[in-house]
Amino acid sequence: MQRLRVRYAKRGRLRFTSHRDISRAVERAVRRAGIPVAYSAGFSPHPKISYAGAAPTGVASEAEYLEIGVTTPCVPEQVKLGLDGSLPPGLDVLDVVEAGPGGLADRLEVSDWEVRLPGADRELAEVAVEKFLAASTVDVERLTKKGPRRFDAREAVLRLVVSEGTDRTAAQVQGRPCVILRMVVRHMTPAVRPDDVLTGLRLVADFAPPVPPEVTRLAQGPLDASTGALADPLDLDRDTTRGGEAGPAGEHVAG
């Protein structure tokens, strides 16, 4: 069975889709596109589509990944066109490769997040980030399905910088300056999410943005230990299946 690895984005208003919403949408799109998806055996067969580390509801992403098992070999570029055309605008297919050896989930070691904080004060943000990075641990609490859970939000944060840009999504008046946090966070258990880091900033410096943040995952993948940069997790598949043809760069513009 050929397996295809898909990188897709959830953008704009479709960032409010939950993981379950996306999986239904993908199953339907696969059928609409006529992709020969494999089904599990048994009483109620399920299409063989698996997801790696989905971004939470309300968070946009330029780098979500899934894997499709197909019964007859497909040309990745055609699957990309077919699937993208069958998904609603806002769920956009960015890259499809044939899976090489090795699991995809193992390669998704870190995420690069962009957190836009409209109306937040830049100086306060910088002070908070400085304090956060200076701390050895920052314990935060999050309500999980199993009740409140306390964990350290500091260790997972490999990089955290403040910059400024203009508002991009429709939520705010276009063109107004806006504080932006960029953070590279290692995937751990329990997962440290951008809102946990924001909780940490509130704890260390009482930094609280006035409106809900706009969060976008820009990339996820393996960490290059020497450069500290994020690599494209599908490059390894391309190397083994097509001899190293370059994929798209790590960053895309959110819609």
Partner: peptide
């Protein structure tokens, strides 16, 4: 009114039901 609604959506249950964009 979407730009005003959008700021409220992170605070409600199942926000996707309010955004439209169905196939």
């Amino acid at each position: 009114i979407f730009h005003r609604l959008e700021a409220l959506l992170p605070k409600v249950q199942k926000p996707i039901q309010y955004v439209g964009g169905e196939l």
